[in-house]
Nucleic acid binder design. Sequence first.
DNA 1: GTTCTAGAAC
DNA 2: GTTCTAGAAC
Length: 177
Amino acid sequence: MAWTYGLLDAMKDPRLQIHNDYDIVIIKDCYPKAEVHFLVLPWKNIPSIKDLTGSHLPLLKKMDLKGREIAREKGGGRKFKFGYHAEPSMKRLHMHVISDDFNSVSLKTKKHWNSYTTGFFIPSEKVIKDLESIGRVNLPSTSQCSLNLKTPLKCHKCSYLPGNMPALKLHLAKHVE
DNA sequence: GTTCTAGAAC
DNA sequence: GTTCTAGAAC
């Protein structure tokens, strides 16, 4: 499927690049799911989080550090999440740098929501800790991933349980103000 | 990953 | 009748 390789073109596009050096690039997500949403990618051909080993630690620590730096510089004081999807749809390892308002017209589905707010989202710190301790990332199983994505909607900041996506989006607006 | 839309849910 | 979601896309 051609669309799974979309990020390989996007990361080369200077119009999307926020930062670019010899081993990593940071781009704006083309369909941001929050007010600020960047992707940190290595130039090295690492297809997915499943391919990571201890040898990637220096690179992952740099991606983490640069991601936090960009969030500080471009985040306008917003709070951020840093991490990876357990089962990404697109090729090339990419770390999400996403502001925790989730205020975006591109946030449309339950899958979108649950991919950032359940165990489907693997924080960057955990990826690094797993590689340091066991030399690989301990990921949820395929069935655990599927359950995470189908979990009933829940607000990430309070106990509110929205009945559907429009209700969630109305509720999120209250946390922003 | 998105777009589109049938039919479920209300 | 309208809103919303889930699944196909050759």
